[in-house]
Structure formats: C-alpha cells, structure tokens
C-alpha cells in the first residue's frame, strides 16, 4: 500500500517584501533581504513554496539605557556607545542580515535627543553597514513624526522599513514611508483582529499592502510566549486559507527577553546566566519562526548564531 502523505494545498500566498536597495537600484546597500513569499507553513516547503530562508537581523539603539542587561551589553562593550560601530560589529562579526536601530534616545522622557542629533546617528549608520536597515522611533508620537520623517529623507532610495505604526499613531509614519517608498512595520499587541485592523488602517490611508510588514509582538519565553505562538500561528493559517489582508510577512523580535530578569539574572540554581540568557533568546526566536514569523530581530550574537544554525538545518534539511 502506498501511503498518501497529507500535504495541504493552501490557497493563500504571503506577499513578499524586499528591503534594501542596491546601487543599481538607486540605493547604496550591498545586500538585500526578502521576507515572506510563502505558500506553505514554515519549513514545510514540500507542500508549497517557502522561498526565503528567514533572515535574522540584529537590533541596536541610538543610546543605551543604564539598566541594559550586562549579558547583552558585554559582546559590544567596545562599540556600544557608537551605533555605527555597533552595527558594523553585528554585520561583520556576527552575520546580521539586517540592522534595526531603535531611536529611544529621542524620546522626550529619555534623553530627548534632537532631530539633528538623530540625523547624525542615522547617517553614520548608513555609512557603516551595507545591509538593509530598519529605523524605529521611540514610541513618542510627536517626536517620532519628526524623527521618522527625517529618517525617511536621509534614507531616500535605500528601501528601509520604518516603525512602528500603532493603532493610535500611524498617520505620520505612513506619510514618512510613502514619501520615499520605504516599507512600514505595523505593530499589534497579541491580537489577530488588531493585526488585521492595522493593515486595514494603513491601506485605507494609502500604504500599499505590499509595503507592510507585521509585528504581532513576540512575548518572551515564560512571559506569554504561548500567546504569541498561537496568535502568530493563527495569523499565518488565516492568511494561507485566503485572508488577503493578513497575507503580509511577519517580523518578530526577541527584545522582550531582555526585560525578563529571570532570563539573565545571576542564579546558580538555573545555571550559568550567560548560557541561560542566550538559550532563552534563541528559544524565543525559534518559536516565533516555527509559528510563522518570516524574519527575526535579535540581540545577543550567540543567540543569533544558534538560531541561524537551526534555521539552516531546518530549511536545508527538508524537502522543498
């Protein structure tokens, strides 16, 4: 008896979003990444297309908060005060496929860095690395409007992603992305309906669906990971089953791990804090990918290394 393998025929196809523009395309990037494009569940290329090995980007800041965990800080001790050098190390030593800078220092409640200072940072970053870039504001609506407008102009032609668009604050960032044909990251908070609503708001406002990447919020391991896991799975299943509005790539971050002291605090009972933190972050990232994320943004170089290795094994080992 021949065993018939139950391969699903999905009707939906996830859109593909490319970030980064090469010189030939009017930019100065030396590489690009493609997110999404799948017609199968993650790593199940035998039943459809899963054309892009998920890229792993690394996340940096314009300023580093005092309480930034030691374990995450350590690999970058020599460069952490210089975003350009920090990014360069991520790319050259740790193989980051893209760099995301969070401009937290511009927040009026933090250092309130001026738009001019922020511009300097972004110009340096652009010069320092050739990989595609993501530029995120600080979550202050008014300031972000100015910072992201500036970023959009500085990065004109580079095909970046700007973020994060939120339900309560998406218009000015949408304008910033549209004015220079960048992409936009739409944030939703563990809620499939809100994820959908965000895409509707953005497209109604004029953003093309093909320029949107969703960030459905990856909770950290032990801090609601299961909610994220199920929300991401449900978003992806709905998209593959034909929900056009959700046929958008997902980008997830492991940042929340670095808010959970349990992951990195000194505690002999739960093992070496550095190894634990690295594995904590890697597990959080991998679970997002298995649920349906098309790309990750991560922090610790060793966590990046481990996830990349797993992705390579998962992607390369299976039938395509």
């Amino acid at each position: 008896m021949a065993l018939e393998l139950p391969k699903e025929k999905w009707v939906g196809k996830i859109g593909q979003v490319v970030i980064g523009a090469l010189e030939s395309e009017g930019g100065t990037r030396t590489s690009k990444v493609a997110l999404g494009g799948a017609t199968s569940l993650p790593f199940l290329g035998f039943e459809g297309e899963y054309p892009n090995e998920p890229p792993i980007g690394m996340e940096i800041f314009d300023i580093v908060r005092e309480d930034y965990p030691e374990v995450a800080r350590k690999p970058f001790e020599d460069v952490i005060d210089d975003p350009g050098k920090w990014a360069k190390k991520c790319v050259e030593e740790y193989g980051a496929d893209m760099i995301c800078i969070r401009m937290i220092g511009t927040n009026p409640e933090e250092e309130n860095r001026s738009v001019e200072d922020a511009e300097q940072t972004i110009k340096e970053l652009k010069e320092a690395v050739g990989v595609p870039l993501l530029i995120y504001g600080s979550g202050d609506e008014e300031k972000d409007a100015k910072v992201l407008e500036m970023a959009s102009n500085v990065m004109a032609g580079e095909r970046c992603l700007l973020g994060l668009a939120e339900e309560a604050a998406y218009k000015s960032i949408s304008v910033a992305t549209m004015s220079n044909d960048h992409g936009i990251v739409a944030f939703s908070n563990l809620d499939i309906n809100l994820a959908k609503q965000m895409n509707i708001l953005l497209t109604d406002f004029g953003v093309k669906l093909g320029n949107i990447v969703m960030d459905p919020l990856q909770a950290g391991l032990g801090y609601g990971l299961e909610y994220s896991y199920s929300v991401i799975e449900r978003i992806r299943l709905a998209a593959l089953m034909g929900d056009k509005i959700l046929q958008v790539p997902m980008m997830c971050g492991t940042a929340r791990v670095w808010n959970a002291r349990e992951a990195f605090k000194e505690d002999a009972d739960t093992g070496d804090s550095t190894s634990r933190a690295i594995f904590w972050e890697a597990t959080t990232g991998l679970s997002a990918l298995l649920a349906g994320a098309d790309a990750l943004l991560m922090r610790h170089p060793d966590a990046v290394k481990h996830v990349k290795e797993s992705v390579k094994n998962l992607y390369g080992g299976g039938e395509q």
Partner: peptide
C-alpha cells in the same frame, strides 16, 4: 542536562502546554 538549557526548556514546555 545543563541547568542553563533545561530551565528555559521546561519553561517552554510549561508555556506551550497550558490550556489556551
């Protein structure tokens, strides 16, 4: 069975096997 690996792994299991 390194504690630094097992503790997060148990945590993952705890998360995934809760009643949604």
């Amino acid at each position: 069975a390194d504690r630094a690996i097992m503790y997060p792994l148990f945590t993952l299991r705890q998360n995934i096997y809760t009643d949604p």
